[in-house]
Write a protein that binds this DNA or RNA. Structure first.
Length: 813
RNA sequence: GCGACUGUGGCGAAACUGGUAUACGCACGAGACUUAAAAUCUUGCGCCGUCAGGCAUGCGGGUUCGAGUCCCGCCAGUCGCACCA
């Protein structure tokens, strides 16, 4: 009597066994290579979505695979628990963000356990707990002392109706999401982290990240955006001082016909004081949000300020324009405009009838004027006094030297990367450990007073942050002078918590310091798994924090993540799953109906990890069908008992089938190493197809051998099913500790091989030859093949290409 | 707008370094078992053509004996753009 496959009961029983033995608990062990496998921790939004299931399944496959390969594996889990959605939910449901968050964590933890991940839960972290965030406050005070955190004004989205700062996602088509009011830009004081001080190192160390996808490294390089150029000073025509611009094209300096500044530039502000039209235009530029995509796609507009600056070499008076395409946040917030050699300047100059001057000609002859577009390539200089006749790169170098001699500029390296603004005017975040004292100014909270605890029993009314209205929180005394003082009421960007959690997992119970020696054992993370959407910000900030922690002496390595796997999105009907589109699939009912193993297998099988995954209910059925077949064959083998025969089958048919099993295993091992898990799942399906044939032929030992391979191959993907069958077949120990299978090379040997036969690259037949056949033998056999002879009729063979083991191609004309 | 990526049957996809395109599944067709259905099993399945054969990897070129794979130019879609996480 066969038992049917009942995943719910089976999985619960297996999980209870794991909870008793706790095999995922990791401890430092110098005798084995360590493998720290980390998946990006979730925001506790309420319940798991398919993206989480996919992310953690991929991580779990890697963790379990490496355990079977003999590594000392750590796979932790935690909660990125601060953030905006908790505040929104609190306003909507009249609950406190903390209570909502803890409830979600409890529910989602239960879901993760149901999925059977090999997680060391003793290391669980929630970033909203004071025992976690106190250490980030501690680090912040160190960084303030080192000058790596500083205060300046920054631009935010301001909702004039709700009187509140909006996140970019809360700005929809230039309007506040609740009030519908037109959003304005507003300057407020904020704290910044000096990530630009590490720009060069963040850029250069990308080269040592061999285990990262090239595309992610390329995105980070572009984001950092190092460019070599020059700073050029244009003296004000009236009054003292000069306007600084940065350019990578100093060679085009003689072609500058005007300069343009951002609306927020001091020069624009000054000029607007006695020019109402200009003031109105600047106000217009300040409308709209701060998102770069919005700014970059808006129509280019500008206005003459009426002021002039002086060209540092020619002495010409150049008009100063305000232009909305100039970004205050990049360089000096001002550009020299060279319409003939910069497309944006060309478009702007064309629109406003500003002059153009060609100063660079292409090597192959002069440009046809008037220009129809800017000539932006390097070339030979003209109309540039002493510089005429020089090539662009040479001219750039010389220009830097000449400007320096005139004190009108200097060569300079500029980054696109800006310092990281970490202040948020929100409640549900880590308090910034600073006290403002009328007498002493800005004072960091002393170490013994940390953590600055965020009160959790609050009422969210949707208007402003509770701690900004709570004297019990913000009223304090100055640590320096003991006089009355107020606490900073802004909280930190939640990217701060996620920038160092990977290190804290090594020693989550440490209450005397941020990290201890265990961090140097486990770090760097050997494999990091997460969504491609984090390719730039999170991963750059985490790399930055690693270097900060290194430089305060907490850890020794330079980079946090040795290998990175960026998993694709989960789609339904070709679109990202989202509540608004109504195309979500809840993992919970799926697991209840088919079990975690089916969900895991479907996710692994359906797409390679880095690509998007198209959800398919019938695909889930297919996965379930496959696991049922594995179960059924397992029951039959268990009933048959151990075979007395051996695997050295004399019959050719059995030898061929056994070869198929080992060939699939060999391919699967290759695919496992290159993290192409979908074809590992395919290979396991092929092996099952073959094993069913072998079982039908009564080949007991070969089938049993193949089945033990199949169970181990599937163990990382479907751990419950394989654990149960492994025990039932008495294969020894738990399958999670079984040795990873390796193909038997002897089984892969073959005497005869099939070659493809081509004439002029077209397939004309196939040829069976001895595996040992020489090129000459193969060519001779190919020339006598009837279909080949037919296609060679009237032609002379000019060349024969033999690709060993693959094909023979006769080239004839 | 800028940066990065993706595009192969009706669908998800495979083809590792250029070497027999469509493995493995899904859906669908036919059959078996069944009173029936579900489940399960067997079998067929890129397109055109009666065959011979021809045409097919988003579109247009190129390199090569040979291109899904390499190069150039387009088109479409996806992700990121600094306060969503």
């Amino acid at each position: 009597m066969e038992h049917s496959y009942q995943p719910r009961l089976l999985e619960q029983a297996i999980q209870q066994g794991w909870e008793r033995q706790n095999p995922w608990r990791a401890t430092e062990d110098s005798t084995r290579p360590k493998y720290y496998c980390l998946s990006m921790f979730p925001y506790p939004s309420g319940k798991l979505h398919m993206g989480h299931v996919r992310n953690y399944t991929i991580g779990d496959v890697l963790a379990r695979f490496h355990r079977m390969k003999g590594f000392n594996v750590l796979q932790p889990m935690g909660w990125d628990a601060f953030g905006l959605p908790a505040e929104n939910a609190a306003v909507k449901n009249s609950t406190a963000p903390a209570a909502w968050t803890y409830e979600n964590i409890d529910y989602m933890r239960g879901q993760l356990r149901t999925l059977g991940f090999a997680i060391d839960w003793s290391r669980e972290i929630a970033t909203c707990r004071p025992d976690y965030y106190r250490w980030e406050q501690w680090l912040m005070t160190r960084l303030l002392d080192k000058g790596l955190v500083y205060r300046k004004t920054g631009t935010v989205n301001w909702d004039p109706v709700d009187q509140t700062v909006l996140a970019n996602e809360q700005v929809i088509d230039g309007r506040g999401w609740r009030s519908g009011a037109l959003v304005e830009k507003r300057e407020i004081p904020m704290y910044y982290m000096r990530i630009t001080a590490y720009a060069d190192e963040l850029l250069e160390d990308l080269d040592q990240l061999d285990g990262w996808p090239e595309q992610v490294k390329a995105m980070q390089r572009n984001w950092i955006g190092r460019s070599e150029g020059a700073e050029i000073h244009f003296a004000y025509a009236e009054g003292e001082g000069s306007l600084k611009v940065f350019t990578t094209r100093a060679d085009t300096l003689y072609g500058a016909t005007y300069v343009a500044v951002a609306a927020e530039h001091p020069l624009a502000t000054a000029a607007a004081q006695h020019n109402p039209a200009l003031a109105a235009f600047i106000e217009e530029c300040k409308r709209g949000g701060v998102a770069e995509a919005e700014i970059a796609t808006q129509q280019k507009k500008g206005m003459d300020t009426g002021s002039f600056v002086v060209h540092p070499l020619t002495g010409a008076r150049l008009p100063v324009w305000v232009a909305n395409y100039v970004l205050m946040s990049y360089g000096e917030g001002a550009v020299m405009a060279v319409p003939a050699h910069d497309q944006r300047d060309f478009d702007f100059a064309t629109q406003y009838g500003l002059p153009m001057q060609v100063v660079v000609q292409p090597a192959d002859g002069p440009l046809a004027e008037p220009l129809t577009e800017a000539f932006t390539a390097d070339g030979v200089l003209v109309n540039s006094e002493d510089f005429s006749g020089r090539h662009s790169p040479e001219a750039r170098t010389k220009m830097g030297a000449v400007l320096m001699a005139l004190s009108s500029g200097a060569p300079r390296i500029q980054y696109r990367l800006r310092d990281w603004g970490i202040s948020r005017q929100r409640y549900w975040g880590c308090p910034i450990p600073i006290i403002h004292c009328a007498a002493c100014g800005e004072v960091t909270v002393p170490e013994e007073d940390l953590p600055v605890v965020l009160p959790e029993q609050v009422v969210m009314d949707g208007v402003g942050s509770p701690i900004k209205k709570d004297p019990a929180f913000y009223t304090t005394t100055c640590p320096k002078c003991a006089g009355p003082a107020t606490r900073e009421t802004d909280t930190m960007d939640t990217f701060v918590e996620s920038s160092w959690y990977y290190a804290r997992y090594a020693c989550p119970d440490q209450d005397q310091s941020m990290l201890d020696g265990r961090a140097n054992y486990w770090l760097p993370v050997d494999q990091y798994v997460g969504g491609i959407e984090h390719a730039i910000l999170h991963l750059l900030y985490a790399r930055f924090f690693n270097k900060l922690m290194r430089d305060v002496g907490l850890i020794t390595h330079d980079e946090p993540f040795s290998r990175l796997l960026t998993q694709g999105m989960v789609l339904k009907d070709g679109a990202k799953m989202s509540k608004s589109k109504g195309n979500t699939v809840d993992p919970q009912p799926l697991i209840e109906e088919f079990g975690a193993d089916t969900a895991r297998f479907f996710i692994i099988f359906t797409s390679p990890p880095e690509q998007s995954l198209e959800w398919s209910d019938s695909g889930v059925q297919g996965a379930f069908r496959f696991l049922k077949r594995v179960w059924t064959l397992g029951q039959q083998l268990a009933a048959a008992g151990t075979s007395t025969s051996n695997c050295d089958a004399p019959e050719e048919q059995l030898r061929d089938l056994r070869r198929e099993v080992h060939a699939s295993l060999k391919q699967a091992n290759y695919d496992m190493e290159r993290q192409q898990f979908n074809t590992v799942a395919s290979a396991s399906m092929k092996i099952l197809n073959t094993l069913e044939k072998l079982h039908g032929l009564g080949a007991g030992a070969i089938t049993r051998e193949g089945f033990s391979i199949l169970l181990r191959l599937l163990a990382p993907i479907t751990p419950h099913l394989t654990e149960a069958l492994w025990a039932q077949l008495e294969l020894g120990g738990p399958v999670y500790d079984a040795a990873w299978p390796v193909a038997d090379e002897a089984a892969l040997q073959r005497d005869q091989i099939e070659l493809a036969l081509q004439v002029n690259g077209k397939l004309r037949g196939s040829l069976a030859v001895a595996a040992s056949a020489s090129k000459e033998d193969i060519e001779a056999a190919a020339r006598t093949h009837p279909n080949v002879l037919k296609h060679l009729e009237g032609l002379v063979v000019r060349k024969v290409v033999v690709v060993p083991g693959r094909l023979v191609n006769l080239v004839a004309n």
